[in-house]
Design a protein around this nucleic acid. Structure first.
Lengths: 295, 295
DNA sequence: GCGGCACCGCAAGAAGTAATGCAATGGAAA
DNA sequence: TTTCCATTGCATTACTTCTTGCGGTGCCGC
């Protein structure tokens, strides 16, 4: 099949090449397709031809006329066009291949960078601004925050608690207070928020804490990967991100970035509370009289 | 079907709503879908399940578990989500416009992602594989590691210490042991390594610790940004990176990624020591008899 | 260690989609 | 006007995709 050697890169190209032999029905079909290429690439021949007001058989014949073996092959072409042309959306396979090539000639660093960047790119698809806003709204309206994570997530939990405190939101890192955890949970009530972090394996403690929060009417935020997404009862707000490539990514880059976005968004919706607290903290540190060694 | 009155606007939403009943196969499928929602919306159940490495039947069952009548209805939902909400793959121009609109009305997430990705890209120019290797070699040949960071860096320090320990390198996070810091430093000697972390403002403690390490013949690694790069006397190895735009990027993404690269590189040059320790740790956790609540 | 339970893959059957032979319509040339 | 040809729509056939009952397997609680 010589078409392979000269696959038109665009639908428009393809049309102009064959414009002489196009019929009335073909035109109607292509018109509909050009108006909404996304739908065209997703729908099946029957649906497209219905929208074009022609018989499904015409869609098949158009595909063949354009040089494809059948309609499915035509649709595959449309899809490939969209995905490739889409800029950020290389196919995962292509991305993986690129990474392997780079990993071969480069060292560890560039391959780590590649995989972190790819993971961050994927966040665009997996997490919406509404998700972030959901978290920040809950935080804005709460009295106290308890952050909890075990293992690697513990580091992230302490960072989140630190940043929330500096933004004027009373936050406690439960993991660093394990010996006081019962006391902390005992005072939990409506108006409090528990922010859970779980990756790769949700600690049983996570579930117990979630249960206690439910009983006491505290809200629950959960930032997890898909492996740890099962929390019962479901958190009030949850953001689940892909755990990335098959490789055991130990990285906290993605969740940390999401947490950063939440805290930044919080500052955008709390009428200056965060900003005031931050500058207050700065001033305090400057002239509190404490030794700089301690700070 | 009452689902119609409350159709979740996003796949993520839908996952968190049903997160409790998701199975292993479901997770694999959703993972693949989240990584490339466009493909997922276009492909049929068979293709998606193949990419996820599960049986097509699992795709159907996932769809039903999520509340759809069957897989086709699930795919229709995915498509609808993309068309109205995402705009993730309109023409490049349209996408750019959409991004601007989103950024204007507060799309914090994507701007955070952009700046983190840009910061990671810069690392390629600022840090070489030789720098990474320099760190990992020092770590490989040392007896003990002391990691130190204040403020935000403290979270990173604890993460580094945790990972080094799991890799079989005795490491202590000094910041979490502030009350014992004198005792720890008192035993410092040749063969020990101090890994310093400093960003935006090097704590005076950093300099004192560096001085003590010099007197006692311990090696010093420093991971800093350019503002905190002046440590006297100079560390044995130092990596200085820009943490992103001039804006007050509080993010630890860049240093964390470099630390990850170092630890990964360490595993590549220590003849299996890291790998053995990691699998040893895994085995220990599995049958040490300790309550999983603690771990 | 033994039942009970949930999950997964398999494979047969059901549903839906695509392809093709055939007849009807409409237009152009003889 | 008649004939021929292209194109469309319909209906049937062929094919792909989806669904579902069944048996094997692993895990948890007893």
């Amino acid at each position: 099949m010589e078409r392979q050697s000269e696959i038109p890169q665009l639908l428009g190209d393809l049309i102009s090449r064959n414009s002489t032999k196009l019929t009335e029905a073909d035109t109607r079909l292509l018109d509909v397709m050009m108006q909404d290429p996304i739908r065209a690439a997703m729908e099946n021949g029957k649906a497209v031809s219905f929208r074009a007001g022609v018989h499904p058989a015409s869609a098949v014949r158009l595909a063949r006329r354009l040089g494809f073996k059948g309609y499915p092959e035509f649709r595959t072409f449309l899809q490939a066009n969209l995905i490739e042309g889409g800029g950020d959306f290389e196919s995962p396979a292509a991305r993986m291949a690129a990474r392997l090539v780079r990993a071969e000639d480069g060292g560890v660093l560039s391959s780590v960078l590649d995989s972190e960047i790819a993971a961050l790119q994927q966040v665009r698809n997996a997490v919406s601004d509404a998700d972030v806003r959901g978290f920040s709204e809950v935080l804005r309206d709460c009295r106290r925050v308890f952050v909890f994570g075990r293992g690697h997530s513990a580091a992230l939990a302490s960072l989140i608690a630190l940043r929330l405190n500096r933004s004027g939101y009373p936050a406690v890192d439960l993991a660093s207070q394990m010996h006081l955890i019962a006391e902390a949970l005992a005072t939990l009530g409506p108006g409090d928020v528990v922010w859970l972090l779980a990756f790769r394996k949700a600690s049983p403690l996570i579930h117990q804490i979630r249960k206690i929060a439910a009983e006491r009417g505290a809200k629950v935020l959960a930032l997890t990967d898909l492996l740890s997404a099962r929390i019962d009862p479901a958190p009030d707000r949850q953001i689940s991100v892909s755990r990335g490539e098959a490789g055991e990514s130990q990285s906290l880059v993605v969740p940390m970035t999401i947490a950063n976005a939440v805290i930044l968004d919080l500052a955008a919706i709390d009428d200056g509370r965060s900003l005031r607290a931050l500058s207050g903290f700065k001033a305090f540190r400057a002239d509190c009289g404490l030794s700089p060694v301690i700070l």
